[in-house]
Design a protein around this nucleic acid. Structure first.
Length: 316
DNA sequence: AAGGGACCTAATT
DNA sequence: AATTAGGTCCCT
């Protein structure tokens, strides 16, 4: 029998815990495409068919059962598990209506919408989102996931041990600023570790939950505040805006979205000099083109296109 | 103002 | 042995 530092029991079995159920068909939520498409790095599909993950300080698992999704949350803290999932999965967004709207705006996106109609943008804890995407420059998704997993295993607070599997929170800012270079290098982060430590330190200087409050300011304002951090350029700022701050119009322009833009906007007059490298004004021009074509949910459109490009064009 | 190189690292070719 | 992978910074 183990207890956490706060004195709460951490050993339990999922089968002893209550199961919640959300009426979400495959077209309302594609778990694999949503949890494993590069916007979140900590979800893993277990052999038993459940996706295991951590949301903030809660251990979570979720799986598809026909036209519904079952989920469990630990610790349960009353019955707010459903509220937690509703928020995290952005169930305020009616996906079938959105997909319909995006399809009307542009025919080039049709195959992407058809291939994976259930992709959702998540509402992740923004500080974790920012610190995670600092691992992304010149890196690959599998390596980012492994690095973050190692940081959490070694330095994250223990939430629970369920069926013998440990669930740990993302390391705290106080922990991250004290981590020696060797720890970051051991996690395979190379020179990116310094950026994580520096940004964690800068976050500690801000008021408590400062980043979270950016959820209630306009996109351009939140973006400007993020770009102000060292090692945070437009791409990482847009990732945090879209995946952590609920700014649905943010479009992270990476190499894939950039390449896609040249095809999608070949006709646009404004795409005149998109042929050069992706920096400064060019980034902003590409962003504007996506926003003009796809509207207030341009970020969601980007995610469909991005996933389609990276995972081939097979029908789903 | 736009373009080029450096940067840790490990899987892939 | 080279190349490459969800960029950013610094330098011409």
């Amino acid at each position: 029998m183990s207890v956490s530092s706060s004195g709460r029991m951490v050993d339990a079995a999922w089968r002893d815990l209550p199961v919640g159920c959300l009426p979400l068909g495959p077209r309302d939520l594609d778990l694999a495409a949503t949890l494993d498409c590069g916007q979140a790095f900590r979800w893993r599909l277990a052999d038993d068919g459940w996706w295991r993950g951590v949301i903030g300080d809660r251990a979570v698992r979720i799986r598809r059962v026909g036209d519904a999704c079952e989920y469990q949350v630990y610790p349960s803290r009353g019955a707010d598990g459903e509220a937690l999932l509703r928020k995290y999965l952005r169930l305020d967004v009616d996906l079938s209506t959105l997909v319909e709207d995006l399809a009307l705006r542009c025919s080039r996106i049709h195959p992407a919408l058809r291939a994976h109609p259930g992709i959702r943008i998540l509402a992740q804890p923004p500080e974790e989102t920012l610190l995670s995407f600092l691992c992304s420059p010149a890196n690959s998704v599998p390596r980012i996931s492994r690095s973050i997993e190692q940081l959490c295993e070694r330095h994250g607070a223990l939430i629970a041990r369920l069926d013998g599997v440990e669930y740990r929170a993302f390391p705290s800012k106080g922990t991250l600023i004290k981590l020696p270079d060797a720890e970051y290098r051991a996690a395979g982060l190379g020179w990116r570790g310094l950026g994580i430590r520096v940004v964690a330190g800068r976050l500690l200087l801000k008021p408590r939950d400062w980043l979270l409050t950016l959820r209630s300011v306009p996109y351009v304002e939140a973006r400007a505040a993020l770009v102000d951090f060292p090692n945070v350029g437009p791409k990482i700022a847009d990732c945090v805006c879209l995946f952590g701050l609920l700014k649905d119009e943010a479009v992270p322009v990476d190499t894939h979205v950039w390449a896609l833009a040249k095809e999608l906007f070949a006709d646009e007059a404004a795409s005149g000099h998109l042929t050069k490298s992706l920096t400064g004004k060019t980034y902003d021009r590409v962003l504007a083109l996506y926003q003009e074509r796809y509207g207030p949910y341009a970020g969601w459109a980007q995610q469909y296109l991005y996933h389609w490009r990276r995972h081939g064009c097979q029908d789903g």
